[in-house]
Nucleic acid binder design. Structure first.
Lengths: 121, 121, 121, 121
DNA sequence: GTGGTCTAGACCACG
DNA sequence: GTGGTCTAGACCACG
């Protein structure tokens, strides 16, 4: 899986890494149990500080998306918690986006279609 | 309309203000043409600096949500642009949230129901 | 001549009045010697403070575009100075606009065509 | 590139900075990808507050002229949008300037010559 | 009274 | 070290 960093984005680099790995898991590009590159390898590959990659991995670990052990590096967790709900923070963000879609004159049907496409990715 | 600031949030205060006003417009709590509190009044009400409120208003103005004039302060714009689409940034955010919903085991139907509730607010 | 004020413009009202009268003279809609409405009449017509209209007239007078006398109110001056050049301030503004046209990829020919249209107004 | 602030100008300092950088890009004095001074460096150099410089940079960023990243500061963007047109606001300004040129007795040829000189800068 | 601008000084996350 | 955020306080033009 290839991680692409936009150094000019307002989104911090460690979050860009975290987000892309989460989306990789979601899309199936990263499968359960799959080995992730080491912190050192990934940081060299994308040309950034190891601390930044490390921070991304730590967040993914604390969120329950990956497991790390000293010997094997990081792996996608086999059984990710199926809370069947969004975090409070994600709900807030989603609420804001829904609001902006409404103001922009999108129909709920168009919105559902848009998320349908994203769902399929 | 009451604006509530979460001082522990990662979201900057000026953005919290901006977001809540956008959501107020979306929900109909703020109607087209409605007068917003003056920069000074709002800053005193929520106990923050006028510069911070002013920044929120300037962003809302640049986004076309409100209008300001020197005499009367700020008002919700009568005719907000109906682009019928989301900004690239909002799409990216939405894509990330959809991914996390999928991983958490939400069904698309549940997701649609959640956004339906938000749509109704 | 009808003066239209945009109360939400960043351009101060007195300047909007001043600019529209100058453009009226330029286009020929206001002819040399033509009587302008009194400060009181114009302020009532457009629903603003007399001080604001008065300020616009004072500027036009100081710039040599109009003449005022207590008996007859204001008139467009018969012989406006033909300096055949722009003020330093207008040159600065024009220089900035030219720069932005260049960056936006306009050709000099397109720019000339645009000013040609404006010239004809 | 040297930025000069006119403290007696009606143009706000942050706009003077913004305008000079835009003109620097237009003239080629600032090339695509070129590093701009840091907010701190520029504010010290011209003896004004960091907030004021920061505001100028944020406007340039929102207009798509520059990019900022946390590590390296600000750079001139490589691919600036080529809308091939002026903003409504710039058109209004240009229309006013054309009017004043006409009243001052400039010929269209002289006006074109003047903008030609500016174009070459 | 209104929004807009600016300062001096501070703290923060990111990298 | 970098840009981003925020404050307290001040002054200004506009109307």
């Amino acid at each position: 899986m290839i991680i692409k960093i936009n150094e000019y984005s307002d989104v911090p680099i460690y979050l860009q890494i975290r987000n892309q790995i989460v989306m990789g898991i979601s899309s199936g590009e990263l499968t359960a149990g799959e080995q992730l590159p080491t912190v050192r390898a990934l940081s060299m590959e994308i040309g950034i500080n190891t601390m930044t990659v490390s921070k991304a991995y730590q967040i993914l670990k604390s969120e329950g998306y990956i497991l790390t052990d000293r010997k094997n590096g990081a792996r996608v967790r086999m059984e990710i918690d199926q809370s069947k709900s969004l975090s409070a923070q994600n709900k807030d963000e989603l609420r804001r986006i829904v609001s902006e879609a409404k103001i922009a004159g999108m129909s709920k049907a168009d919105f559902d279609k848009l998320t349908e496409e994203m769902w399929g990715e």
